[in-house]
Design a protein around this nucleic acid. Structure first.
Lengths: 248, 248
DNA sequence: GGCCTACTTTGACCCAGATCAAGCGCGCGG
DNA sequence: CCGCGCGCTTGATCTGGGTCAAAGTAGGCC
């Protein structure tokens, strides 16, 4: 869900139950009735667990507002975040019964849900929905595998830069640009959540953010508000290939 | 592709172009003609690169014999293996143009391929194929995310144990069992490949394998042949929950 | 305003795993 | 049969990031 390709697929129809054209009740009018019938909303408070790993999951849906994380936890408490759900991201596993990981709301969260069975029935009748979901899942798989490189081979500094560039890129359309072309955004995560995402400790996250600030790669106002004066510099710090001008 | 659910989905029809019922030319006779028409085989030598990251990929297919790896590489040479392809595993990205990572044959390899366009056309006409592929992709996504926990939070010893248990479990049906119930299998990877999979150096891999051997968790004959006297002990070393008796 | 709590930063020290550097052993070609 | 090379093991040392500890900061609530 962090890949470039997905950026274009959510659309801005605020009435859409799932903010993707392929499964949008408004934009695919032939599916409207079925979807409306099985649609409902759920909201969660910051910190609440939406689904526990292993629990039976009888719905699919998407984030409307707020942020949730997918995390895996070992018995001794070590946790690894394996995904980040931002508004318009799809949640669910058509054809699978239980959740494979905890889904935790990190801010107050509103989700739009569909009961799973009827949704699957609808899927069988409308092949392009399954195809769209397949493409979305392939994008998530790419994102997960890209993250494996970050976790396995990058240094702490590169990990931080990778995370910042992904967050900045993720909702590039929403981000402000200063007249000088700098990117401005708010970190949606605490230091601890960043650490869980990056396989680091929160102390190391804090130190590396301070270092990037000291070196002028980023400008920090408060703890969350970030300005990136030169996005290609950030990509360079992340060890990624420069993106060939998209943010030049 | 390393998840338990996938174990049951390949079937043993040796004539099958793709060893999954959902896309099997023999077992789904209505698709036979189309598939036969667009089917061809390719073979590769050990060490050969099947597809380079970013290359246009005009086919989908599956491994018939041999082993391939999915790897990502940084400019400075650091590499991370992001997937392991064993016989019957699916390769390809329906609806996506290029490959996202290098696919490298680690042994001599035979693949069964279908040209992508006609395969996609077939997919549009037969919805259950898209659904089956969606489920397979969800399994791979689970496996990738499970691996993120390994890469981000486990110690070197736990990483090795995790890899061994996954390889042992992966083709549990093929593995030998001694009268005492021990699992026996051959490592399909060099120490270096294991290191690239685990985000370690090959020296650390070697040391930890020696340690597991010294502690009696595994028995090594030669460099590749492994006996696991007590699978639950191995799972314990991996930091995983015991599997509730499947291998008890 | 002032305290409280949750989050963050910074410092000092330590250790798991990386790095550098020999050797080992086995299969293969001559 | 020997020697060469590649994959593997083992040892010595170094270091990035973890751990433990303390102090700084900011919002929320009385």
């Amino acid at each position: 869900m962090l890949k470039e390709e997905t950026l274009s697929t959510p659309h801005d129809c605020t009435e859409c139950p799932i903010r993707h054209r392929a499964v949008c009740a408004r934009c695919e009018s032939d599916e409207l009735e079925v979807l409306e019938e099985i649609k409902y909303y759920r909201s969660f408070q910051a910190g609440q667990t939406v689904i526990w790993s292993g629990d039976k999951m009888d719905f699919v849906g998407s984030v409307v507002t707020g942020i949730a994380t997918l995390t895996q936890t070992m018995e001794d408490g070590r946790t690894q975040m394996v995904g980040l759900l931002l508004p318009s991201d799809f949640v669910g596993r058509p054809g699978r019964d239980g959740s494979a990981y905890d889904v935790v709301a990190t801010t107050d969260l509103v989700m739009c849900c569909f009961r799973k069975k009827p949704f699957e029935t609808m899927m069988e009748r409308t092949p392009h929905v399954a195809q769209r979901l397949l493409e979305m899942t392939l994008d998530e798989l790419d994102a997960a595998r890209e993250w494996m490189l970050v976790l396995g081979r990058k240094t702490a500094r590169e990990k931080i830069a990778s995370l910042l560039s992904i967050i900045a890129r993720r909702d590039a359309t929403l981000n402000l640009r200063t007249p000088q072309g700098a990117l401005v955004f708010d970190l949606p995560l605490t230091r601890e959540a960043m650490a869980d995402y990056l396989g680091l400790t929160l102390e190391t996250v804090s130190r590396q953010i301070s270092a990037l600030k000291r070196d002028g790669v980023i400008v920090l106002e408060g703890k969350r508000h970030i300005t990136v004066p030169d996005f290609n510099r950030l990509l360079d710090e992340a060890g990624d290939d420069s993106d060939g001008g998209m943010f030049a």
